[in-house]
Write a protein that binds this DNA or RNA. Structure first.
Lengths: 168, 168
DNA sequence: TGTTGACATGTGATAATATAACTTTTAGGT
DNA sequence: ACCTAAAAGTTATATTATCACATGTCAACA
């Protein structure tokens, strides 16, 4: 668990990307009078440390291992809070959560989910969302939230991958 | 449960929209050497008869009431089959299923889900999907399936509706 | 015509995901 | 120190989904 020294850039205070993201999250929340409590902070860290997405129960297991409560509401509450405030995204196709890549920008994103390695790529989707919102408005429908998700193969998994729908 | 006579258009053989859709579905499947078995047929009917979307267990309850098996796999198998062959769509935001409005056209759709009355509107989303596919390709990601869903308020529910996120 | 083989269905058990309802703790304001 | 509101903990349960295996159906064809 010891953190390795930052490579040749000269040793500052170990500002890992995760720590930086946590700091940013904390500022964002404080600016709105909200608190990044220990469970919430740890939940966000867990997601930031994970390349792909995690299910609520995966998060819960890690939280419990760190001494937090071990019942589902502990994880769901923290996750819901983080989603609500734009720090985490919920992926409905796979019932999982992933840290937001660009918190605080009030953006709308789409997600590319690799069915092979489970990694998740967040892509900007302002245009995509705008199109959907206006298509909807034409139908008299007022859009409040969107889920824009795709599954398929990430660059690393494209070679030698099993075709969609086929088996061994 | 007796079917009322078709109104003033002259009594043919009761070609309800549901029956017509079932016939279409059957042709489509037969053209591919697939069978619209009784459970599958009834499952599709159930969804066609319902304005909104139904959860798998809602479908299951209706199937069981009609004398089919009462265990979850009965519903999930029929639903999965119908989804697989483009006759039914799965809505991931609400864990529910809805009959396809335009079967056999091999289209891609987006869904507008009313959070108030639960009705679902299917809109064409070829352009939307094409945009997402090409955004993804730019990131080296190969898209296989998409979920494009929005929740909000349908035309009927927009007046006097409770604002998103607020309470009584 | 009877066997076979593939597909479909039925069933029991259980896994995975999510929420409700209530209690206790904690942080911050007075 | 006391109070209050938000947060965290806990018990229980609801909801959604899959696995594994037994049984049934039906058409091809020997």
């Amino acid at each position: 668990m010891t953190e390795s020294a930052p490579h040749s850039t000269g040793a500052r205070k170990l500002p890992t990307p995760v720590a930086a993201a946590i700091d940013r999250a904390e500022s964002l929340l404080q600016g709105q009078g909200l608190r990044l409590t220990p469970v919430r902070r740890r939940t966000l860290e867990i997601l930031l440390e994970t390349p792909g997405a995690l299910g609520a129960y995966d998060v819960l297991a890690r939280l419990a291992a760190d001494g937090f409560g071990s019942q589902p509401p502990v994880a769901y509450r923290a996750l819901d809070f983080l989603v609500e405030h734009g720090l985490v995204h919920r992926l409905r196709r796979i019932n999982a959560f992933t840290a937001c890549s660009h918190p605080g920008e009030h953006h709308h994103a789409a997600f590319l989910i690799c069915r092979n390695c489970k990694r998740v790529e967040e892509v900007h989707a302002e245009h995509l969302r705008a199109t959907l919102v206006s298509d909807a408005r034409r139908a008299g429908f007022e859009v409040e939230r969107t889920s824009l998700e795709a599954s398929g193969l990430c660059p690393d998994c494209r070679e030698g991958a099993i075709p969609d729908g086929a088996a061994t």
